[in-house]
């Protein structure tokens, strides 16, 4: 998108301006949500009396959602032409998870 020569400020037409505005709105909303999620996570650990069996999965879910925001909104994986980065990122996630799972299951269990 950044490479599109038409996006320079002078030539930007109303359609593109509209899209930019929407994009900005999405960025701000997801940023606010991520701050909110972080506050919730800290709050749960700091102030709630929750059992850790319940707390840890909640924190993990919050973390996964945040990673999703990071990938799809801030790193633009939701946009077109991001299939290859998506394949690479999920490939990396797969390799990393496999490593962690193996170390946890066969070394430390």
């Amino acid at each position: 998108m950044a490479n599109n020569p038409n996006t320079s400020k002078l030539k930007m037409n109303s359609f593109q301006r509209q899209k930019k505005k929407e994009e900005m709105k999405k960025q701000v909303i997801s940023f606010a949500l991520m701050i909110g999620f972080t506050l919730i996570a800290f709050g749960l650990v700091g102030f709630s009396e929750m059992d850790s069996m319940f707390l840890v999965p909640i924190l993990l879910i919050l973390a996964v959602v945040q990673v999703g925001f990071q990938f799809y909104y801030f790193m633009h994986m939701k946009d077109k032409d991001h299939e290859m980065p998506a394949v690479m990122i999920y490939g990396g996630v797969f390799a990393a998870m496999l490593t962690l799972a193996a170390l946890i299951v066969i070394t430390w269990w």
Binding site: T99, A102, L103, I106, T107
Partner: peptide, 12 residues
């Protein structure tokens, strides 16, 4: 520590 971790990391 755990000496086997090296083997896992090295062969991964």
């Amino acid at each position: 520590g755990n000496a086997i971790i090296w083997q896992h990391l090295f062969w991964i």
